[in-house]
Structure formats: C-alpha cells, structure tokens
Design a protein around this nucleic acid. Sequence first.
DNA 1: CAAGCCAACTAGGTTAACTATGTTGGCTAT
DNA 2: ATAGCCAACATAGTTAACCTAGTTGGCTTG
Lengths: 122, 122
Amino acid sequence: MVKKTGRPGYLQIADELRERIRGGFLAPGEPLPSTAQLAEQFDASLSVVKMAMGILRNEGLVVGQQGKGVFVREDDQLAQDGDLRAEVTALRNAVQDLTRRLEQVEAVLHTPEQAPARKARG
Amino acid sequence: MVKKTGRPGYLQIADELRERIRGGFLAPGEPLPSTAQLAEQFDASLSVVKMAMGILRNEGLVVGQQGKGVFVREDDQLAQDGDLRAEVTALRNAVQDLTRRLEQVEAVLHTPEQAPARKARG
DNA sequence: CAAGCCAACTAGGTTAACTATGTTGGCTAT
DNA sequence: ATAGCCAACATAGTTAACCTAGTTGGCTTG
C-alpha cells in the first residue's frame, strides 16, 4: 500500500483524495481518476480503492455516476474545513421540508374515509 | 436482503442500526449484535454487514473493539471530539434515508391507479 | 490452586470474482 | 450518411475467502 503506517490502506487513499479535493487539486465537477487508474497510482487493489470511494461518497465529497465516473461534488460546495455551517443549514432546510411533507402525508393517512388514492381499487 | 427497495443492503442495514441507536433501542455503551448475528438477523452476507459497520464506524456512531465487539458510542464521546464532519455525515444519511422513504409513501398516496413513475424534486 | 495453553469467539483488513447497469465510440449493414 | 449492434470501459453491489489480532473461558499441567 501507499505507506506502511498502521493506518489501513483504504483510509489512506480516502485521506489522500480528500486532501486533493480540499486543496483544489481536484476541482468541483472534475472527475476523479477511474478506479483502475487509482488502483495503479496507489499500488493498491481495486477493492481498497472502491472502499475508499465508498467512504468519500458516503461523506458527500464526491458523486458517482454509473458508466461515467466519480466527480467532485459541486452543488452545495462541500463545507470547506471548518465551514460546516452551510452543510448544517442545508440539512436543517431538508429536515424542515421533510417535516412539512410528512405532516401532509400523515394528515391523509389519518383521514379514515376520504383517502384519495387508496380506495376504488379493491 | 431486508427489503427489495432500490436501496442497497449495506445502507439498509446501516440505516436500521442507526435508527436503533437514535431511538434508544441500543443504548450508549451497549454492544451491537456480533457481525455473524447481524448477518443472520438481516439475512445478509457477512460482507454487507461489515460494510454497514464500517459506515457507522466512520460516522462515529459506534466504536469497535477487536476481540470484544462493536459498541454504541457514549454520549460524552459523541458530542465532543471536534469532528463535526462525521456528525454531519450521519445527519445527511438520515435525511437521505428519510427522503427516500417519504418519497415512496408520497408516491403511493398521490398515485390513484398505478405507474410509480414519480421522480421527486432534486 | 496457579500458570499456561488452546479453542472458539470477536472485529478488522485485503483481495478476487461475479453480477448489474450505464456510457461511449467504433464498426457494420442498409 | 444514418441506424443499430457491440465491445470496452465505467461505477456499483454482493459474496466468499483468507489473514491478522484481541478476548474469553475452559482445560491441562506443574
């Protein structure tokens, strides 16, 4: 693997790619090297690279597109190093949206007879 | 796998365990079932369970101890540590999961006949 | 009894193989 | 030239196998 520190390889690769993104070496919207290329660059197996990609995907730093590649996230500008505020704001908005929609759904479900979609089928 | 939704199994398991933790069904300091037990409970392979555990570990929700088990992180450990990024990641995952589930419910309620061709806003 | 060994558990890391699916470009046949 | 097919490449998910290493409890041996 990259280095023989105690840190597992898939985390080392994730760290490295994370640094490249944060440092601007990989700009938002730009594609990362393919899995195979990264495996060769890091002298790692495909599996560990895929694990690293999964972590970055889970963190929201990158977005994968099947058949095309993995791209640095660009929409909400991924909370640079200490500026998690934007991310938290986005999450708060999302929660409010979910709450509002859930209330509407619950209102429909708790209406015994008038269920607009469920009847007239059975 | 658990459900036949489009959501991959390792994410479903991570979601479920995340819910158990947030719901208090798994208290802080309490051990999760072993990997093998979870694999049986979810009718999944060891691999997908390990992937789910890796996600929760990466999010900081749980702490693994080799030879002993995986434990729900204590509250005092949870709130501090400065790494809000993992916390945000966990929140984003929860929001994504809730969004997905809500979309499915809405699709049912808003579709009188059939055709689940709803795509939801971006 | 005490010390040590050992088997059976545990998490964790790595690799490989297989499948599914989407994209792209090049070739071929009309 | 256009349409269609197809091979190559891409991400993504799943599974299985093998290895390391820590823990625990029981058994054996001194």
